[in-house]
């Protein structure tokens, strides 16, 4: 194995014979003249843009105050016909308080097989950050999000975004907030394919229904 390593590295070094020996990587100029965020927006406008872009990629978007969240989740799960829902270990217990008596809550356990997850109807999670310009939610395996597979195998994903705290404008701003070491899933709309004559078809292997709930964390309400 190390012979392959030495061979490849030696070839790379020979191939770069034209690069001056005292040149360091940082001597090669990278012009970062691009924008940190596109356009000037108020916080409220950034949240609106997130909602618009999520909807544009066929996520179902809901906006509520924190106090209404449990009832909304209950309603959405019922409307989807769900009888069971996967729950990450650190999901705030209040969120599913209203749905609890009606639905089977399935904890996110390492021991469960993929087959077991396939039998669960829905999953409810929080998120790490949401990006307005691209309509993206990012999961990083935090306690309210769980293992990557629980948002993949069930056919219905409900994701709660706390606005405005978890919302950033742009991709560069999102990367600044995220820890590279954590496994991440960036989600922009439900899974889709355009492989058949370029017709967009939603829902191939990931959840076919993605619902994003923007929860206003400041319960006093604002304009």
């Amino acid at each position: 194995m190390s012979s392959g390593r030495e061979r490849v590295l030696a070839r790379v070094r020979r191939a770069l014979a034209d690069v001056p020996r005292d040149e360091r990587p940082q001597d090669v100029r990278v012009e970062r003249g691009y924008l940190r965020v596109h356009g000037d927006r108020t916080t409220a406008r950034t949240v609106d843009l997130l909602a618009e872009n999520l909807a544009d990629y066929r996520a179902l978007v809901h906006r509520v105050d924190a106090a209404e969240l449990p009832q909304l989740l209950k309603r959405l799960l019922a409307a989807h016909g769900s009888r069971s829902v996967l729950v990450p270990p650190g999901l705030p217990p209040g969120w599913l308080a209203a749905a609890d008596p009606v639905l089977a809550l399935v904890p996110d356990r390492e021991a469960d097989t993929a087959y077991a997850l396939d039998a669960v109807d829905s999953v409810v999670t929080g998120c790490a950050v949401a990006i307005a310009e691209t309509g993206t939610i990012v999961l990083d395996g935090g306690p309210d999000q769980g293992r990557r597979r629980i948002t993949l195998v069930p056919d219905h994903h409900l994701c709660v975004v706390r606005v405005p705290d978890q919302v950033v404008g742009s991709v560069p701003q999102a990367l600044e907030r995220l820890a590279p070491g954590r496994p991440q899933t960036w989600i922009s709309g439900p899974s889709a394919t355009s492989d058949i004559e370029l017709n967009r078809v939603e829902g191939v292997h990931g959840p076919r229904t993605l619902e994003v709930i923007l929860v206003d964390g400041r319960t006093e309400g604002q304009g």
């Binding site: 872009n53 990629y57 990006i131 310009e133 691209t134 309509g135 993206t136 990557r148 991709v171 590279p180 070491g181 954590r182 496994p183 991440q184 899933t185 960036w186 989600i187 922009s188 709309g189 439900p190 899974s191 889709a192 990931g206």
Partner: peptide, 12 residues
């Protein structure tokens, strides 16, 4: 031609 593709996975 999308603002962002549906899924991006990152692992370390």
């Amino acid at each position: 031609a999308e603002r962002m593709n549906p899924y991006t996975s990152m692992w370390t």
